[in-house]
Design a protein around this nucleic acid. Sequence first.
RNA 1: GCCGACGUAGCUCAGCUGGUUAGAGCGCCUGAUUGUGGAUCAGGAGGUCGAUGGUUCAAAUCCAUCCGUCGGUACCA
Length: 471
Amino acid sequence: MSIKPRLSRGLRDLLPEAMMARQRLIEAVRGVYETYGFSPLDTPAIEYLDVLSGSAGQEAQQSIFRVSSPEKEPLGLRFDLTVPLSRVVSQHAGIQLPFRRYQVSQVWRADKPDPGRYRQFTQFDLDAVGAPCGRADIEILAAICDSLTAVGAEPYLVRFSSREILNLLLKRAEIAEELATDVFRVLDKLDKIGLKRVRLELTSGYVDRSGDPIRGVGLTGEQVAVIEQFLSIRGDTRSDVLKQLGDLFADTEGVAEQLEVIGSISSSLDGLGYHSDRIALDVSIARGLAYYTGPVFEAVLLNAPEFGSVFGGGRYDNLVTRFGGPPLPATGASMGVDRLLAALETIGKVDSVKTPAQVLVTVMDENLSQECMSIAFELRRAGIRTEVHVGTGRLGKQLKRADKLGIPYTVLLGSNEAERGVVTVKQMAVAREKGEAVRGKDQWKAARFGQRTVRRSEIAETLRRMLRGTP
RNA sequence: GCCGACGUAGCUCAGCUGGUUAGAGCGCCUGAUUGUGGAUCAGGAGGUCGAUGGUUCAAAUCCAUCCGUCGGUACCA
């Protein structure tokens, strides 16, 4: 019995068209990161379970894909790139600090798949380890902006806040420290579910539309009132927001220092040309994750807000210490490659390309096979991406293949051409356009639209000119 | 995880008050046209009707369970 070809849930193939778009995006972002001087890193997909666990809290534990080794060691697939990074800087003593690296790799989470959310997906991370709060955070924020510009994601908005500011809020509202994560998690949902449901979820909880009870955090009315006052802070500029924060927290201990930290990041960004239209100070940004300690941020595409944040990140000053050694302050951002691609696709910023080939050299006469190969290799040496037909089938089938794959040019070499020392170059799109009006097959075939005969010796130069668009 | 809907060809779907050999459109393949991709025409391949069990003389159709998909919700490093 034959095996049914299939994939486990939450997994998918990336066919050439998807891969071409993905590679273009990754190349663009990689280019940006390298202009900032960040270095590449890769780490194994498989890590020890104890290395993976315990850093990001309980939630991470459950969604780790377990892997078994021949030695029966407890292993798992990485679920993000930040934990492996902190292992790397702890394990390699000779590493130069601050360690500035980028990494684009697959990660795995054993969650329930949702639209646009898979069990294997790609993250593109940028981090600086061994860098205290300040210039590193500014660079990360700017690099996010430059990346989004480079991939054509404009208009976008990066929003940031700070865990320290949120901690001031907790202090001001007299909320117990152990509730912090729960409160942040709920605040993080403000955009999605609205103030009314946030209020309910912070207090007694509620029952959602499907009849599912949502557990409440159990805050008092007074505490929620303080939070609401905080959340109502909005401003056209970052300094507006800072001023309002100063007013609200006027008599809270430690406020001056924290606002100074954010204020200096903000004014530095202004000085570098990154203003509030691109990077906004938004106090409702909390990030669900427990390990953040300072500035936190995320980015959305303004023309595709339904996809949520395509970048997320923040400062995590305590993560590296769990491998022992001195504390290493760190900050970084993670791009959701799959999500960003999906968002770009819906706003029409992803060209559909099925093959890198610019030219297909057809083979219609086995006796001329070697000559066809020679032409293909000549074109390649001239820097033209060229496919030579390696299958069977008549010319019609080969042209159809070029058409389906969107290869713009074909080269035809039959006995007619060979005798005269020429080849035929066919521009597929021209033939298609001019052929619209033609009714019968005979006329279509006879017309030879978009074709020109060139000397065999000039084929590479001719195609190079045609691809450049100069006749 | 919870609630709901839905699983029939590569894709989109029809058929489902049980009853001969399960259909359509698109796509794919072949030919008309042995040197021309579109259009047209002719032909063809492709399905254990999600799986298992049950009811029945008879199940794609009814029932149960499981699996999967989609929508909502929760979670989201």
